[in-house]
Amino acid sequence: MDFDYFTQLFFGGLTRGSIYALIALGYTMVYGIIQLINFAHGEIYMIGAFTGLIVSSVLTMMGMPTLGVIFMAAMAAVIYSSAYGYTMEKIAYKPLRNAPRLSALISAIGMSLFLQNYVLLAQTSDFLPFPSLIPDFEFWEPYAHVITSPELVILITTFVVMVLLTVLIKFTKIGKAMRATSQDQVMAALLGINVDRIISITFVVGSATAAIGGILIASHIGQINFYMGFIAGIKAFVAAVLGGIGSIPGAVLGSFILGWTESFFTGYISSDYEDVFAFIILVVILIFRPSGLLGKSETQKV
């Protein structure tokens, strides 16, 4: 086993994990606040990637400099994904706030189907090449054999997003309201928190991080497709459950664990069963620790 290969896999797993983390955060936040598995979250990420592609190609054809294109594409992706997340909540989940959880979950599956096929019909079913927006930095050249500069950018962006998110949740008024709402909606409403608005904000924030993930992964892998959100969404969900759904540090931890295991598994054993492996981890974790690694175990009340 040579060491370079190991570090490559290590950083590969880290990059993969940070992408999962960006998506998993949205799952965890939404679950924490309304106990709903937002099945369509992966589709939001896909829409982010598509919007990024469309905006960046239009701007590139208009002759904008690369840096401007990156900035505008990322902005558009974030704005549109947030808008989709917001609308989705209003249409498919808000009328079901008091319905059984099964109904909301089925509605979420329907939304996921709808968004996938909407993009399929309006755009294309083919794989679209995605321009690599992140250039290779010259100063990073000596280390590029261990971790490429796009990977570096992904890691740094993820780190920044996490810090911002932690600040938002821990230290701002909105964050406080979010935590209150996730603990007890009725009590939060009694104390003057606009619960509907807080839930919308949660969806918007979750969708925005997913969009960032979408753009980063699309430009890293180099192609996108209407179906990309599904498997990524499932895996991010696995990561969120692994760490304990509802817990934000848990989602990050779970994502890194999943990223590493997948990376090492495919690197040393076999790449055929990569997805199988992710699901097996999920099943095993859920059997032995149903509340995840960092999750609080819930006591049921009569």
């Binding site: 598995i37 959880r101 979950l105 499932i234 699901f279 097996i280 099943v283 859920l286 059997i287 149903p290």
Partner: peptide, 21 residues
């Protein structure tokens, strides 16, 4: 046998995972 102890929505995801496996 192992998964039915899980709560509703976890069960949905595990069965989904099993289907894919």
């Amino acid at each position: 046998y192992p998964v039915l102890r899980l709560r509703g929505d976890y069960l949905a995801i595990v069965t989904l995972g099993f289907g894919e496996i």
